[in-house]
Simulated assay, not measured.
Amino acid sequence: MAEFQRFAERASELAEAQEEVESKDPELSDIAMMSSPLVQVTLPHSNPGDVDIWSRENGNLSLYIRPGLQKAEDGDYETLGLPYGTYPRLIMAWICTQVTKHGRRRLDLGQSLQSFMRDLGVTPSGGEHGTTGRFQDQMRRLFSAQVGMIWSKPGREKRRSAAVADEMDLWWDPKDPEQRTLWDSSVRLSQQFFESIKKRPVPADRRILREIKDSALAIDLYFWTTYKAAVITEPVALSWQQVHDQLGADYENVSGFAREARKHLQEISVIWTDLTYQTPRGRLKLYPSRPSVPVDN
């Protein structure tokens, strides 16, 4: 009974979101952006643990991430850990959106952690299992990381590596997320990273992102299908193994990944009704679809 009630509540939420999205095209404030390479090869879904480097591949494109450092209690340095899960994805979408709209490397995060989190659709909460501490931890991990891309094919190779940020000022207290500080928190993106995310960003609808923000896989699938819908001119069929390798390498097995992916695709398609796809046995087949954000925006 409890499971049925949760399903009914979720269906009602999606129906309301569908009505909002279909009632009008997204305004400028409703549009979010994501770097196209990070749509094709995505960040970790779950904690990779204490590793020196993490990587994922998609055909000729490889992504790798190195964690930043922090000062340990003994005065030495230790790895800060790698960014993973939903928060870095939401933060990265915010970064790409700000860069696309304003074209600046230095981004103001505001005087309140609470207001920044709410702007990203995250509800602040305190305590040991609250959102504020985990959010700020993931933000520090992301801003301190180094991201590298390698494009390779026979006879040619191209590499790009950059720290996400070369300067970060965080004045927030996660124990008091409503506290306003004397100075605004800010981050300055490295020049190399700034240049890389300006190229061919993928637009998406923030109203849809708000509904799927609790799942890293759902966020990845939404940006990925949005990207695919804009570039394909005929149906494309991929095995679940191929989709898994691009978006879900953290899953223990492909069948479990496929089951979750089908569930999230169904949720996304309830809101983005123009998304056309099929899931024949062992495959995902995408058809050319009207993008969730009209091209002329």
Score class of each variant (00 low, 15 high):
1 M>F: 10
6 R>W: 07
9 E>Y: 08
10 R>V: 06
13 E>T: 06
13 E>K: 08
14 L>F: 12
28 L>Y: 03
29 S>N: 11
30 D>A: 04
33 M>C: 01
39 V>G: 01
47 N>F: 10
54 W>D: 03
56 R>V: 08
56 R>E: 09
59 G>Y: 07
62 S>D: 04
66 R>I: 05
70 Q>I: 05
81 G>C: 04
85 G>T: 00
87 Y>G: 06
91 I>F: 04
96 C>H: 13
98 Q>D: 10
99 V>D: 03
112 S>I: 01
116 F>D: 02
117 M>Q: 15
125 S>H: 07
131 T>M: 05
136 Q>D: 06
140 R>N: 14
141 R>G: 06
142 L>G: 09
147 V>W: 03
152 S>Y: 07
159 R>C: 09
159 R>Y: 07
160 R>W: 13
160 R>V: 14
161 S>E: 12
161 S>W: 06
161 S>F: 08
168 M>N: 04
170 L>S: 03
171 W>A: 14
174 P>L: 06
178 E>S: 15
180 R>V: 05
181 T>A: 09
184 D>F: 08
186 S>I: 00
189 L>M: 11
190 S>E: 13
192 Q>V: 13
192 Q>T: 15
194 F>M: 11
201 P>K: 04
201 P>F: 11
201 P>L: 04
202 V>L: 06
203 P>V: 02
204 A>L: 09
206 R>Y: 14
208 I>M: 12
208 I>L: 14
209 L>T: 02
209 L>H: 10
214 D>I: 07
219 I>F: 08
228 K>A: 12
232 I>D: 09
237 A>H: 06
243 V>T: 09
247 L>R: 12
251 Y>T: 00
256 G>V: 05
256 G>Y: 05
264 H>P: 08
266 Q>L: 10
269 S>N: 11
274 D>N: 12
274 D>C: 04
275 L>T: 00
279 T>S: 10
280 P>N: 05
281 R>Q: 14
285 K>T: 04
289 S>R: 05
289 S>D: 02
291 P>H: 00
293 V>Q: 01
295 V>S: 01
297 N>L: 07
